Computed example of a mutant assay.
Amino acid sequence: MTTVGIVTGAGRGMGFECARRLTGTVDRLLLVDRDRAGVAAAAHELSASGCAAVVEPFPLDITDGVGLAGLARRARELGVLRAVAHAAGISPTMADWRRVLMVDLVGTVMLAEALRPLLTAGTAMVCFSSMSAMLGPQEPNPAAEAALGEPLDAGFLDRLRDAVGPSVEDSGVAYSWAKRGVQRFVQREAVRVGPVGARVCSVSPGIVATPQGRQEAANQPSMKALVARTPLGREGRPEELAAVVAFLLSDEASFLTGVDILVDGGVVAALQDGSRVRP
């Protein structure tokens, strides 16, 4: 049986490190990224490293339904889908609020729907959320939660805007809602795919030293303060996130599904505790 893995956002950063880890666990690995040159270079680097898996670049925007159908066809042609690490996404400084929600939440759901027919016993998927999902408003907002539950609805963006108010037009606020939606989707998807023996979890990174993270830090001075509040006193490393993802995708995590794993160095705990960790 030929096993297949898919990593999105694989051109750099956490996605690339996830791909590096998966080269030792599947026979064929599809690297997905909208950056055609970047994903080709990533595939070449992994192949040149002498990895066991056959690595193939697959340029794709995850909000492209036709392209996602092609990705599913290609995975089916190659073998049995074993692992999916969905790291593709954009951060607040990269787009306006609508695009952030479309890529980070709607694109996640579109990918899962395209791949769902390929899931079988032992298939595992990990979607990237963010610690920001836990740092937004905590008061109940039933209308917003209802909108998040139907991200493929034609009126989704307008429904969420009506529920949250004009603040959601701030791309940082939209990012938090998108990542909250990813966590909610993973819970529902775990219930949906469990009967066939498949699993799905999410991970929520804190501040991680990646090119995308550096771009955000250059535009958001508050990120430096968050690092200062982190109990471990530093940013995360991409390979640390990839190690958690690799575990969640492995048979060792065979009873984990429908949960989010916070990988933030303890900063959310510090913020919720209200303690001052260091000067």
Rank of each mutant, 00 (worst) to 15 (best):
A37G: 13
A37Y: 07
A37S: 15
A37K: 14
A37F: 12
A37P: 09
A37E: 15
G38N: 04
G38Q: 03
G38W: 06
G38T: 02
V39L: 12
V39Q: 08
V39Y: 10
V39C: 09
V39I: 14
A40V: 11
A41S: 13
A41H: 11
A41T: 12
A41Q: 14
A42D: 01
A42H: 00
A42F: 02
A42P: 01
A43Q: 02
A43W: 00
A43D: 00
H44F: 07
H44T: 12
E45S: 15
E45C: 10
E45K: 15
E45F: 01
E45A: 15
L46I: 07
L46D: 04
L46T: 08
S47Y: 07
S47P: 11
S47M: 08
S47Q: 10
S47C: 09
A48W: 03
A48Y: 02
A48P: 10
A48Q: 09
A48V: 06
A48E: 12
G50H: 03
G50P: 06
G50E: 08
G50R: 05
G50V: 03
G50Q: 01
C51K: 01
C51A: 14
A52R: 15
A52Q: 14
A52S: 14
A52D: 12
A52P: 06
A53Q: 07
A53R: 02
A53G: 05
A53F: 05
A53S: 11
V54D: 05
V54Q: 13
V54R: 15
V54T: 15
V55P: 01
V55A: 09
V55H: 08
V55C: 04
V55N: 06
V55D: 01
E56M: 12
E56C: 12
P57W: 09
P57V: 00
P57Q: 13
F58Y: 14
F58H: 12
F58Q: 06
F58I: 10
P59C: 14
P59F: 04
P59L: 04
P59G: 03
P59V: 04
L60D: 04
L60N: 03
L60M: 05
L60E: 03
D61L: 10
D61G: 11
D61V: 03
I62Y: 00
I62W: 00
T63F: 02
T63D: 12
T63K: 03
T63A: 14
D64F: 03
D64T: 07
D64G: 09
G65E: 15
G65F: 02
G65R: 11
G65H: 08
G65S: 10
V66G: 15
V66F: 09
V66N: 07
V66W: 04
V66E: 13
V66H: 14
V66P: 10
V66M: 09
G67K: 11
G67T: 04
G67H: 08
G67D: 11
G67Q: 03
G67N: 14
L68A: 03
L68M: 04
L68R: 03
L68V: 08
L68K: 07
